[in-house]
Write a protein that binds this DNA or RNA. Structure first.
Lengths: 250, 250
DNA sequence: CTTGAACCACACGTAACGTGTTGTTTTATA
DNA sequence: TATAAAACAACACGTTACGTGTGGTTCAAG
């Protein structure tokens, strides 16, 4: 009752294309165990089993060369191979997480600026090109471990879609009005909005806000808290100084 | 003060290989804006800017063809492209999550069976080849919405590494002793261990355990709760029946 | 024995370059 | 200014896992 399949039947049964079987034969991965006198390939059930194993390993992300190696060398260390694959998968997941964040950032940036702002995009990408832990590395002079953790958590989970949009809108408004006189009403209004939003995000943790602000001020370039760049920070600083002075005067 | 770069200088400044710039020139993505009389390529600052944009888009996961299209057609819809990329990234993340689970499953399987058990591997892969929601689809006759959710949560988070290993060990033990007489002491002991572990996992929710058990019994093939297959389930069932009868007898 | 379907073998194409070769241009040094 | 060294251009082939297409051959049904 041993079944024998022609390449076409095998293809239909497994969903693998004839060309693929052709290729596997060509690279010596799955050679049919017999042939007709005319040269047509005949696959035994053993061959079918091997094909299924190949497909399983392929699904697991191994290359055909690795699969060949694994199936031929019975001495090969399975656990090692699989742990290696797991490592790769985990790294790729990390990369994709970063990438998703970056894409979201770019999307927000376009939505709120109305056009492509390349420097911002570069900054975002630069920001996400390293590990998530490394992103805050630049602030380590100003923030302690505890504060860093809080900020990471805040970025990841605590902020809702709405919060993010609000935050971006506020900063977008500031970016569009960098030319405003720091003494003007409008400028003060903008910074007030910003301060409110910042308070909302940082909650009651005034100390954290203070440390963060100090860190931001000393930033040389790049963006800090997503779309805030040096220009925005300087604008806020200028307006704040003006306000403090006028408060002192009165 | 307009700077002009030879291909080598540009390569050093941007970290892009000469061959890559060569290729970008060849496919018309970045053509140098001038050349020396001898035919050497000279890149202007505009070219450098374009290169940086290309690199940014490449990081975002676009193909060179898409990039060409995006940069050439200023009418192109950025948001659409980025949302599309986001979709791709999310799908890929889903896939990798599944893959990670499958690899973990295979790893556990090898660890506890000591060798490669291909049917188990096939089952695992089959199990994770669909959406996570679809996995439990086959039980929908026996489980209600609520119960399904509980099980999904349990699989994902509630089980620690230790729990999983315990669970696998228990089932591995049963698999290795399927030949035991259902009346024997050893068999009873094995099933007792299994029941304890199941209780631990399902907590006090006896009802859920009941529904699940019913679902498992009616399973035709494949694996249900990771490494439990029909053989294991039948073994447990047989032992349980023997035990119940002997309890009734006494 | 014919005919249509299945099959084999071969070739070229894909994406984004890496690697290597040969011949030419530029640059630095004597 | 002559020459050697470095940089460069242009081309070709290789990579992965097949898809697509072609022409000739074999198989299975009638």
């Amino acid at each position: 009752m041993r079944k024998i399949y022609t390449i076409g039947k095998l293809s239909k049964n497994t969903g693998v294309t004839v060309r693929t079987l052709d290729y596997y034969d060509e690279i010596g991965l799955i050679k049919p165990s017999s042939k007709t006198s005319g040269g047509h390939r005949l696959y035994s059930e053993d061959d079918v089993m091997k094909l299924e194993r190949v497909l399983a390993l392929k699904y697991m992300g191994f290359s055909l060369e690795q699969i060949k190696d694994i199936l031929e060398n019975s001495t090969s260390n399975w656990q090692e191979s699989i742990q290696h694959q797991l490592e790769l998968v985990k790294r790729e997941q990390e990369r994709l997480k970063m990438l998703e964040q970056a894409l979201l950032g770019v999307s927000y940036s376009i939505e709120f600026e109305g056009e492509i702002n390349w420097p911002v995009i570069f900054s975002i990408i630069q920001l996400y090109q390293h590990d998530p832990g490394d992103v805050l590395e630049q602030y380590k002079e100003y923030l302690n471990e505890d504060e860093m953790k809080k900020i990471i958590d805040m970025n990841a989970a605590n902020m809702s879609e709405e919060d993010i949009k609000e935050w971006l809108k506020v900063i977008g408004d500031i970016r569009n009005n960098l030319h405003l006189d720091p003494n003007s009403e409008e400028a003060e209004q903008l910074v007030l909005c910003w301060a409110n939003q910042a308070d909302k995000m940082f909650g009651e943790d005034e100390e954290l806000l203070g440390s963060m602000w100090e860190a931001l001020q000393n930033l040389q370039e790049g963006i800090a808290f997503y779309p805030m760049d040096k220009d925005v920070i300087n604008f806020i600083k200028r307006v704040a100084i003006v306000k403090r002075e006028s408060t002192n005067d009165s």
